[in-house]
């Protein structure tokens, strides 16, 4: 910012004889964008922003993915508590209602979490909450599991959910949808671990990344919502990256678009909405073999 001003005003202040006749050229689009990008806008109000993108892809008729993005701002003298909930669910089971499972998962999960938080967020005087974020996320998973087994028996779905309260992200994760942190300096960090057989075999060193690409059972999950009696989801809490972007997506994106392209799409887009569009487009250009879902969120200020 300072650089920009000193450059701007320095030029104007430069005492040259040719001042009167100097041609001022408008800044090129590239220069403008560089300036905008270099400005790190300061907001007095710390807030969450988010966007979502979805496409059925190029090779499937049915969209079995579901996504949910819920972002709220509430600020005043008593404080400012960013609150958000972001979920991607990738259903499986086709004739066994994969789309029913993923839809039931996001609604049940979000409904449960919001009901739990409602009295603490929207009542004037409350006691401290007697359940932890992680306990609420676990209970929401179990409730979703119960509803899916009732509404769409035999089907299953992945679920990757991020609850943002203040500067804490609590993740609940089952299956092979993923959550990432993407940083402005071009780093990307996968914060979830796929519950897939191929990932497991790779972790054990029994197959290489290359073999994994062509592994016959690439889609085998060893954990999915709606499946099995004992579900042991991954639940953990991390600090929201600042600056940085939280991305949650289904394998229709991460399995298709290279990480470098994902980073570029996110970091170079003028807005989160555009970034989502770019990501979905990139997956479709790469063949769009599967449903594509992506949610992006940033904590700014």
């Amino acid at each position: 910012m300072d650089k920009f001003f000193s450059w701007l005003f320095g030029k104007r202040a430069a005492p040259t004889k040719t001042l009167d006749t100097a041609n001022t050229a408008p800044l090129t689009e590239q220069q403008l964008q560089a300036i905008v990008a270099n400005q790190n806008p300061h907001f007095d109000l710390q807030q969450l922003v988010s966007a979502g993108g979805q496409s059925v892809g190029k090779q499937r008729e049915l969209n079995e993915d579901s996504l949910l993005a819920l972002t709220s701002t509430m600020a005043g003298n008593s404080g400012n508590l960013p609150f958000g909930l972001y979920i991607v669910a990738d259903g499986m089971g086709g004739h066994q209602f994969g789309e029913v499972a993923s839809n039931a998962a996001i609604r049940t999960f979000a409904g449960y979490v919001i009901r739990k938080f409602h009295p603490y967020l929207f009542q004037v005087k409350t006691d401290s909450m007697d359940e932890s974020f992680q306990e609420i996320m676990l209970a929401a998973i179990n409730e979703s599991q119960r509803i899916i087994q009732r509404e769409a028996p035999g089907s299953g779905t992945t679920l990757t959910a991020a609850l943002v309260v203040g500067q804490q992200i609590t993740i609940a994760h089952v299956g092979d949808s993923r959550a990432y942190f993407i940083y402005p300096d071009g780093r990307i960090e996968t914060i979830t671990r796929d519950h897939s057989l191929v990932q497991r075999l790779q972790e054990l060193g029994h197959i290489t990344a290359e073999e994994a690409e062509n592994y016959p059972h690439r889609n085998v999950l060893y954990k999915a919502l709606g499946q099995g009696d004992i579900l042991d989801p991954e639940i953990f809490t991390l600090a929201f990256p600042q600056p940085g972007t939280l991305m949650i997506c289904s394998d229709g994106l991460w399995g298709v678009v290279a990480e470098q392209d994902i980073i570029r799409s996110v970091n170079e887009a003028p807005s989160l909405q555009r970034a989502c569009q770019n990501l979905v487009t990139a997956a479709n250009l790469a063949g769009g073999p599967d449903n594509i879902s992506v949610v992006l969120a940033q904590l700014i200020g």
Binding site: Q96, H217, L221, Y222, K223, Q227
Partner: peptide
């Protein structure tokens, strides 16, 4: 195993 249309199998 249970198999689905995606070729997805789930073993628990």
């Amino acid at each position: 195993f249970q198999s689905g249309s995606k070729g997805t199998m789930i073993g628990t």
